[in-house]
Structures are given as structure tokens and as C-alpha cells.
């Protein structure tokens, strides 16, 4: 089922995840390539978000997650972040009562290299110039698109090796989504940040991603390169709508 990926940055083996006593993810295997973009596709409630949460240890999990050669077993959410996995959660998770500046500073909370943090801030402004204009504004007053930009930027301030993105298109106008996805691709190419993207809109995700996995009821049912997935008849009928 799983296509071997060139140099896996993250290897997930037999991952199970639970909400309380309820098991939601039933043994998922997948690889995330270094420097690439991998997408998790699937219907609402298939368990995509839960897989991301399990990777960040936000829910109880079993199985192995090996990131850059290190097994994440027993690591807490904050340790996972410190290892270089930045997570943009569903609902964006911005700190609404704090300013844009404070949100971005929090993103770099674990870093001590002040000069590089300042340089990264400039890089982020080059991708999202809007945030420079809104720098001292309360994050809760931003528009939905701006909040999503802020959430991505906050995650980037960690200077992560891997960016977990949970439905970055959610609730946004198509034109803004297009813009954000274009910038995500640029960041991926130019900064070399690997991405694992959860997306309901399969078309959108397959345009962006190199590899994709199809998730159904907590299991990976299909995996391969974006072209292969796009070519699959079942996927086309069920998820791409043509």
C-alpha cells in the first residue's frame, strides 16, 4: 500500500490514536519525505485531524513515530515542537487577545538565536506583507485569511523541519485560499520546509502535494504520488468529483 519515499523525514508505523476510550485511528503507516509536501485526503470525520494530533502527541497514541531518526515515543506536545515539528491546528489556534507581534514571538519561544529569529521575521514578512501592517494589532481582530497567515507564520517562526497543516483552507474565500496555497508552495521550495497537509478539498491538496495518502475511517486505504492518486478511479469519483 505504501510507496517507499526517497528520504523519509518522518516514518509513521502502526499509529493508533484515541479520544478517551474511543479509538479513532487504527494502525496507520506512512512516510513524509524531507523537503516535500505530503497530503492526507479523506472525508469529514475520516480521522485526518486526529492523525496530525497524534503526531503532535495532543491525543493518546500507540505505535511508532520516527522523526529525523528519533522515536517520539513518550514525548509530550511541547517536546515534539522543540524537535522541529510545527503544527498549525484546525481552527488556527491563534492567541486572539495577544498582538500579531506577540503571536510571532511565541512562535519562536523555544529559540535562543535572536539574530536569526529577527532575520526569519523579515523572511515571513516577505511572504505575508500584510502581517507587517497588522504587526501591533490584536490577533483576534484580524480577518480569517489574515489569521490563517498568522497561524502559518507563527509555526514558521519555530524554523521547523516539518510543518503540520490542518485544513488551512477552512472557512476562507477561494481567492484567499489560492493565495495561501501559492505562498505555501513558495515556502516549501525556498525554505526547504517539509509539509504534511490535511485537506478535505482533494483537488487543491493534490495540486500542491508531491505525495498523498487517502484516509478512510481511521485507516490509510491508498498511498502514492500525487499523480498516481489523481489517476485512481475510485478517488476521482469519490473525492475529485469528475
Amino acid at each position: 500500500m505504501n510507496e517507499p519515499v526517497a528520504t523519509p523525514l518522518m516514518q509513521v508505523r502502526a499509529l493508533k490514536a484515541f479520544y478517551g476510550p474511543l479509538q479513532v485511528v487504527h494502525g496507520v503507516d506512512m512516510d513524509v519525505a524531507a523537503g516535500g509536501i505530503t497530503a492526507l485526503l479523506g472525508a469529514n470525520g475520516a480521522g485526518k485531524t486526529t492523525i496530525l494530533r497524534a503526531l503532535s502527541a495532543m491525543v493518546r497514541r500507540e505505535g511508532d513515530v520516527i522523526f529525523a531518526g528519533q522515536n517520539l515515543k513518550g514525548q509530550a506536545t511541547e517536546d515534539v515542537a522543540r524537535l522541529g515539528i510545527a503544527h498549525v491546528p484546525d481552527g488556527r489556534g491563534t492567541f486572539g487577545a495577544l498582538t500579531v507581534a506577540e503571536n510571532l514571538r511565541l512562535g519562536a519561544y523555544t529559540r535562543r538565536d535572536r539574530a536569526k529569529v529577527a532575520a526569519d521575521l523579515e523572511i515571513i514578512f516577505s511572504y505575508f506583507p500584510r502581517l507587517r501592517e497588522r504587526y501591533q494589532q490584536q490577533a483576534g481582530t484580524l480577518s480569517g485569511g489574515e489569521q490563517q497567515m498568522l497561524a502559518i507564520s507563527r509555526a514558521l517562526m519555530l524554523r521547523p523541519k516539518l510543518l503540520l497543516l490542518d485544513e488551512p483552507s477552512f472557512g476562507l474565500a477561494p481567492i484567499i485560499v489560492k493565495d495561501i496555497f501559492r505562498i505555501l508552495r513558495a515556502i516549501n521550495r525556498e525554505q526547504g520546509v517539509a509539509m504534511l497537509l490535511v485537506e478535505q478539498n482533494a483537488n487543491l491538496a493534490l495540486d500542491l502535494a508531491d505525495h498523498a495518502y487517502l484516509v478512510e475511517t481511521g485507516r490509510v486505504v491508498l498511498g502514492g504520488s500525487a499523480q498516481q492518486i489523481r489517476a485512481d478511479d475510485a478517488v476521482r469519483r469519490a473525492y475529485l468529483g469528475y
Partner: peptide, 13 residues
């Protein structure tokens, strides 16, 4: 304000 997001940026809540 937001413990979940704080953990995600590496804060030991």
C-alpha cells in the same frame, strides 16, 4: 489564554 496552542509552540504549560 490558550493552553493547547501554547504547547504547540513548545511552552511547558
Amino acid at each position: 489564554q490558550n493552553p493547547a496552542s501554547s504547547r504547540l509552540v513548545g511552552i511547558k504549560v
